[in-house]
Design a protein around this nucleic acid. Structure first.
Lengths: 369, 369
DNA sequence: CTGTTAGCGCATTCAC
DNA sequence: GTGAATGCGCTAACAG
């Protein structure tokens, strides 16, 4: 038998013995003693106030206040075997798409009376596994992952944990057992490359995350490559600029990553005639740099982004980009958790949403075409 | 006696009775039964493996695997009265500064084996209070708040909870009892206004958050106003553009907020000669719009930002802005929690960091001065 | 309306 | 090495 999904404790347990905190907690029992009622009556005052006579309730509340009582929600979950947490594991805090996910998740969480555990992996597979296990051990109702490493993606047993459904969002996924809600990045990337090729571009640069580590970047990279190949265009490794803005903790600013990438691209021996950026933010950085060099977009250089923000329609030239239905992904995430809450833990729950190529003004045929 | 800090349960308790989840959890006892050992031996295999004979340990681990056992970290905290959580309450997911906070917090959390509870208030005072109480009830070791409403700020009892230290970050604070690590936004705003005034500007616009709600925006607004007053310049209400990008869930993009604000400003009956933006991102939006209108910055219009990002030095003209020591705030946050961990729960812990006026190319004297 | 009993799952203390 | 007993703080089920 291979290793199954097994969650063992993984905390540093040996270290917090410095401060024994002799401060005994105030418990319901103490309130009960003070009020000459039973413990459970105290509990009821808080959880089902209507079941307690107003006068008794009043006395209990006053006593609680006086003692500085704090309700222990952790103990409560034990008692009612309630699961109050939802885990959200992000590969990086950098991604702006993450915001809309966060926002949507939060609103659901609020409605359902849940709370959010947030972890950041910086695309470390080890961190991913650790966090998944941790959140499972906190009895998470489910875990949402936004971005995943190729390595963790292989660990199906971990991702298919029975006790805690895991949902991958942002990207659709090749493994039909794994829950996901997202778009087909491979296809989007393929199509965008195709779009440029049809303009006549043969020398297309790509700014891309670590495709040796990140599942998403790998898919994006592959879509680009396959598209080139399909049209009989030689793949040039030097045309792929790797950004590790996911990983690099110093490099906080996506726009600046795009800026710097463009600098590299413009210094390539054979200068590309088109550049693909992961998102509008990166593209803006690239655009700013290009224009500062006195080059015209799209006459001298075509620029596209692979993920639209509201910004892209306003800058000049407006950006050709790909619309990702973020709101839909967000509401699917909510649906997923609603299914969990109604008792049917999803499995093989796959929602693949279409992307849309938004054509604007940042592309043209290459000059020498 | 006034209301003290009292934490009562605040969950929607009446709703999760749909799915009774008859699936009994696998517990240590079951593993124990299967292995013909006692419960505690099982526990030890996980927590102090070295205290268990290798052969026994092996058997137990196998049984655990076979049964699909999941360690219940919540129950564990009860047993060892360990506090595994840190709360982070953000007023909005929009703010980019939030990223660096998050990053720093996460790294500390990782080192200390803690986990992060994240909540978003969208500057609703009610949400703030609810989340604070919730996190306290989850036995949070401490709570970090990034941004706070004026209303909650008044609730000193809540903020000075003994069981759970609360740290306000980003801004320094006028109440000497309240823990904080941040910069004096009032002063920064005052100085920036002063800087523009000394150029000869008399008609200065300000883009600002809801200063009737947000503590930070209120301070920023006041600094601007007091500076004008000090130099004998009449305050013009129409020169203050309010952005509620904190609140508005649809408006995801800060750059676009700046863009739109600038549009309003340029249409003001008496057009300002200088505009102050909350951050570089807003300012970039404003700048883009200004330039698109055929106006020159800084000749026709001076633009400043009140919070520097890496971007500001690259765009043209480069932005005059204010450097906020984000990294220092982040490490102070860590310090704060280290003090909690070493047993001295901070109180009146105030770290006020200096800001720096970064002068670049986006300001000039007004044309008609 | 209130109390009794039992249990949630694990950890600690002390024995053996 | 291993085990028994007890406690963590709260809740559910059933009684009265």
């Amino acid at each position: 038998m291979k290793e199954k999904s097994l969650s063992l404790p993984s905390f540093p347990t040996t270290q917090r013995e410095r401060a024994p905190r002799p401060t005994k907690n105030v418990t319901m029992q103490q309130i009960a003693d003070l009020c000459h009622v039973s413990k459970i009556t105290v509990g009821r005052t808080f959880l089902h106030p209507e079941q307690v006579r107003p006068r008794t309730r009043q006395r209990i509340l006053e006593a609680a206040e006086k003692l500085g009582y704090t309700y222990n929600a952790l103990a409560a979950t034990l008692g009612q075997s309630r699961k109050p947490f939802v885990g959200l594991i992000a590969s990086s805090g950098n991604d702006s798409q993450f915001k809309s996910i966060l926002r949507a998740t939060q609103s659901m969480i609020r409605e359902e009376g849940l709370d959010l555990l947030l972890g950041n992996t910086e695309l470390s597979s080890q961190q991913e596994k650790l966090l998944i296990n941790r959140y499972i051990q906190y009895q998470a109702l489910g875990i949402v992952m936004y971005g995943i490493t190729l390595e963790t993606f292989q660990q199906r047993q971990l991702l298919l944990n029975a006790a805690c459904p895991i949902l991958l969002i942002g990207d659709s996924v090749t493994d039909s057992k794994i829950n996901c809600a997202g778009v087909d990045i491979y296809k989007a990337s393929y199509q965008m490359t195709e779009y440029l090729i049809r303009f006549g571009h043969r020398n297309i640069a790509l700014l891309c995350g670590r495709h040796d580590i990140s599942y998403r970047s790998a898919r994006r990279f592959q879509g680009y490559r396959d598209s080139l190949e399909h049209y009989g265009i030689a793949f040039r490794p030097e045309n792929v600029i790797i950004t590790d803005s996911d990983l690099n903790t110093r490099e906080n600013d996506i726009i600046s990553s795009g800026y710097q990438a463009m600098d590299k691209i413009l210094h390539l021996p054979s200068r590309p005639t088109a550049v693909m950026f992961p998102s509008d933010m990166f593209a803006l950085g690239g655009l700013l740099h290009t224009q500062m060099q006195g080059l015209d977009v799209p006459r001298d250089l075509s620029i596209v982004s692979m993920h639209e923000y509201t910004l892209s329609s306003w800058i000049r030239p407006s950006l050709t980009t790909i619309r990702v239905p973020e709101e839909d992904i967000a509401s699917l995430t909510i649906d997923f958790f609603r299914e969990i809450l109604t008792g049917s833990p999803p499995s093989g729950w796959q929602k693949i949403l279409p992307t849309e190529l938004v054509i604007r003004d940042s592309c043209a045929a290459p000059r020498n075409a």
